[in-house]
Write a protein that binds this DNA or RNA. Structure first.
Lengths: 242, 242
DNA sequence: TACAAATTCGAAATACTATTTCGAATTTCG
DNA sequence: CGAAATTCGAAATAGTATTTCGAATTTGTA
């Protein structure tokens, strides 16, 4: 349906020949942007289709020509978000020093994400809680595999590398530990986003700070006997990373 | 409406005088049990009031005489769950050895909870994601404070005790660390419950095992320099670490 | 025991909501 | 130009939470 459509609007000559597709892209974007904004501000389940159509300026009948249901809209937004995040994550993992440094960069990225886009994180938390369980595994798998082909092996390698280069403690389980750590950080991140200001008023600390402390403890637990205080201290106070 | 009503059903003599109240209690229970079961099996948002009334054997009109809305039902169940869990948690924290042992007991309890009642945990995850943010802070606070009066000071003390007795590393922040750790474990626990079987089929490990690994890493990160292997390999199945 | 209060039922009514349908009007394509 | 794609408007369908009310039943009490 949309294969050769997005190569580029090369010149005016081509532009006319692609008006249908280009228009469809624009409409789709308008709908997704409007929906995303509403979801962020009010939560998935409190947003009605009528509101989405109103905010995006199309009629319901048009709406359903782009998305077959409200769930479909949610799914599309989730897909885009995951795509974005995984790109950033892969970038963050380029650190050449050692495995611990790469893990640190990845987790720091998640903390920044919470501080900068708490609404998006909250949206993903709602997705997990409401939809993820019932939707067919294939749908999730196809999305995820399209993003990171082999996360299992990859995470396993990471732990193995770290044990080899001495940055991680040697008694970690390559098939388990990295998944457990990532899940803990994502879980903490999304819970903080869900509770939002409630946490801040009750605990007196910004949610970003709480998550960074969780990450600090986890990294301390991963660290090999060698590097005692190397990465421990006030870790992420953003210095000019050259 | 129901002040001096629940002291006790002393004798048969009294029993008759309290039939109204007793009946109301029973009805309330029937509704909550039926609703809880449905929520566990299908998720909060997929359960209709009609189903709840059918399952509990009352008419809608009767239903709304006990709970003013579906949210009200959800809230009541959350309240009971929190009450239960906090009782168990307080019990688990009685370990007299040292602060690290108490924290370990608390986190282990959460892992057992996930393994034994994944549906309940999932229910709480949905509550957090869908409701917790919008509901008035006072409502959450009144519930929580009724359960554990001073969690802040309590958690702070725990860290301070641990630093004093040497079981925790000395550079932890009494006002921050324990909250961060608890939040990470609860977040991980609820995320695993939300994703449920999906995690198991994709990662090939039961969710309980993943959570226990997260907890193991966190505890390693908390541990003071003194007790190297003391509590590490303990609850974690095999692995005679030496 | 008789009467008032509390509880339940049944059934219908209201007000939202997601989703569909269809024909007419407009724009794009070949 | 004529066919195809797109949008609109407006109304229709079906499912949902919540309310209302009078009749029937049970319980409390004088």
């Amino acid at each position: 349906m949309k294969q050769g459509a997005k190569t580029a609007k090369s010149r005016k000559i081509r532009k006319r020949a692609r008006t249908y597709d280009a228009h469809r892209e624009r409409q789709r974007r308008r709908i997704l942007d409007a929906a995303s904004d509403l979801f962020d501000r009010r939560g998935i389940d409190r947003v009605t289709m009528a509101e989405i159509t109103a905010a995006s300026g199309v009629q319901p009948s048009t709406m359903y020509q782009y998305f077959s249901s409200k769930d479909d809209v949610v799914w599309a937004i989730v897909g885009e978000l995951m795509q974005d995040k995984s790109g950033i994550a892969i970038e963050a993992m380029k650190d050449p020093r050692n495995a611990l440094a790469r893990i640190t960069a990845l987790l720091d990225m998640m903390a920044s994400d919470l501080s900068q886009n708490p609404e998006k994180v909250r949206f993903m938390a709602q997705f997990d809680a409401i939809y993820a369980r019932d939707w067919p595994v294939e749908r999730l798998l196809s999305l995820e595999s399209q993003i990171h082909p082999e996360p299992f092996q990859f995470f396993g390698e990471l732990i193995r590398d770290g044990i080899a280069d001495g940055s991680l403690r040697p008694d970690l389980d390559p098939d388990l530990t990295m998944h457990a750590v990532i899940n803990a950080v994502i879980g903490a991140q999304r819970r903080l986003a869900s509770l939002g200001s409630k946490v801040e008023t009750e605990y007196g600390k910004p949610i970003g700070e709480l998550l960074r402390e969780s990450i600090r403890v986890l990294l301390l637990g991963l660290r090999g006997p060698g590097n005692s205080t190397e990465l421990t201290g006030k870790s992420r106070t953003k210095k000019r990373s050259s």
